[in-house]
Design a protein around this nucleic acid. Sequence first.
RNA 1: GGGCCUGUAGCUCAGCUAGGUAGAGCAUCUGGCUUUUAACCAGGUGGCCAAGGGUUCGAAUCCCUUCAGGCCCGCCA
Length: 516
Amino acid sequence: MHWADVLADELLKNKTKHVLATGITPSGPIHIGNMREILTTDAVYRCLIEKGGNAEFIYICDDYDPLRKVYPHLPASYAQYVGKALSEIPCPCGNHKSYADHYLESFLGSLHEIGVNPRVYRASELYNNGEYNESIQIALENTNGIRNILETLSGRHMPKDWLPYNVKCESCGRFSTTHPHLYEYPMVDYTCDCGHTGEVDIRKNGQGKLPWRVDWPARWRMFGVTFEPCGKDHATVGGTRETGAKISEEVYKYPHPGLLVYEFIMLKGQGAMHSSKGTAVSGEEMLQMTPPEVLRFLIMRNQPNKHIVFDSGLGLLTLVDEYDKEEEVYFGKEIEIKGMKEFKKIYELSQPYHIPKTMPLHLPYRHLVTLDQIAKIWPDVKEILIRTGQIPKKLKKEDEDHLRQRAEHVRYWLSMFAPDEVKFEVKEKLPEIFLTEEQQTILTLFKEKIPELSWEPEAIHKAIYEISEETKIPIKTAFSAIYQVILGQEKGPRAGFFLSNLEKQFVLRRVTEAVK
RNA sequence: GGGCCUGUAGCUCAGCUAGGUAGAGCAUCUGGCUUUUAACCAGGUGGCCAAGGGUUCGAAUCCCUUCAGGCCCGCCA
């Protein structure tokens, strides 16, 4: 059974109605780990629905969280906003309502693209609408209980007058600099480092916020959450997962969701990804270089507790090829390989939206890497594909969409992540090169052959070999001559295939010019 | 100090939530294709499933111990 089915079955053992939650703080660009959280939840969600369960997928966006520090991606001027709620500080680009909106919008856009459409709640609204009021009161009434849990489980020591409530300073608007010290229903007295002293009425909305370790269990009860994944960083002893479970049961009297722990995604050669360290490939970037179904495939084929190494270099091409192979097996074009477990379910869960009725048109992904560098825009790529008979003239709309989308992902990958060895540029003019006598000979003979050649990969390939044999000039020399006159470099993509994608007349002209 | 995960072919891993004769890809070798950014086809070689113990008719698979590696936590969230 696929892991998502196993998890769904476990949930259904207890009851049929489920709320699956995920909460990612929009403090910066999302990274791939966040993608995993989302897609893991989505997989279980889909399995629940499929099995006839009544499930809801919600995303609680903690945009009422204060900005912790000036992250590497922020201008230094943001120092003045540290400690204020993400929903209440300006947008870095100026086009959104707030800092939180800036990141939330692109995040939701990414989610939509990978086929995840949860119901979105914002913490800032929940607090400001008063929906947290009861939870806040419960927390404050149980201050000692919560303190006990936190001190025993996590080994923290908190001040005597500590309260499970972070007040928003009425004067400076910060959460991080206030010190609440006395609770007497309904008032909380506090001082702030800005010099302000005051008291807030917890019956009024949005006066403060629960600390994270309390906020989390509070929302489980508020929304009736029965499933939520969490990263391994929360899963340590004394971590938020453990204190949250206890606070949920003892303070909020709510049976805590099990909290599935998922492993991190590592970036090949760079180790674990952390947005705070600035080494992360953002989720948006990942999505721009990886077709959405392939990104889902990466998550779905791996158990949540296994770490995944994402290779943004040549490994990405292999990943796409593996996906295509899985698709071919799914549609019966290829025989199932023994190691391919759960391929059917994995394939279905990999689809952002609908499962195709017939197999999408396949083109080796590496060919697109070449074609994208020969032609700059999709219509030209398409034209080459049609001219060379690699795709039928009349393309079904979904096939064209599929290919175009892939070509776009390849293009982004080429511009940002592809290693230099696969890059080339078809020079518009004859590059300045030095050809040896041998190479001159080769090109001269090749020029003479071109007009009679049928412009197909194999024929071209064969012609080059024949010349090499006749002249006893090493084949390597021959290839490098061709690459030089067209690309201005020693190496290039497989010559026959490559040249066949260029206009015959263009190649003839270029070679002629080179040997003049 | 603690937690989680991992340890299966030279390399990367699947199989471990059905306990029942060890699997794939890459590499290598052989044959074919006149070696082309990690080309293609057919076939072969290759593993005491980290070590030890236990449960069982039977263990890579379940349990315990040990060893090795990775990540996370021990500020805040």
